[in-house]
């Protein structure tokens, strides 16, 4: 299973391509590719995002579903999705739960 991630051009914010077809600031509602065709589709979206200068550093990353929640396989991506592990007050983890769910 893979999802598409990048950083937003204007401010560098880590973003993920979501099921409602936008670059979301949290990982929760990312569009998941479960086969080659899905991956290719996401890759094309990534290229387009780069080409139209919305995002930079576009990558497909491996994820798993843990209790229905999307969890990146690599620690690096877990940290991108949450924020620095030594500062819970920074990054996505610092957001109020409501906005994270939204």
């Amino acid at each position: 299973m893979k999802i598409l991630t990048a950083n937003r051009l204007t401010d560098g914010e880590a973003v993920w391509f979501s099921t409602d077809h936008r670059w979301a600031e949290t990982i929760d509602h990312s569009e998941i590719a479960s086969d080659k065709a899905g991956e290719e589709r996401l890759e094309a979206i990534g290229h387009a995002g780069l080409a139209n200068n919305e995002v930079v550093d576009v990558n497909l990353i491996d994820v798993q579903l843990v209790d229905g929640e999307i969890r990146p396989t690599r620690l690096r991506e877990q940290i991108r999705a949450a924020g620095p592990t030594n500062r819970n007050d920074l990054g996505k983890q610092a957001r109020p739960a409501v906005s994270r769910a939204a």
Binding site: N7, G12, E13, L50, N53, D57, I79, R80, G83, L90
Partner: peptide
């Protein structure tokens, strides 16, 4: 300008892209 064109320019000015942000 594209990211490929811009990257060396921003690096010359101390701007990197890291995990969470620039």
């Amino acid at each position: 300008i594209t990211e490929d064109q811009f990257r060396p320019l921003r690096l010359m000015n101390g701007v990197y892209l890291q995990l969470h942000a620039y």
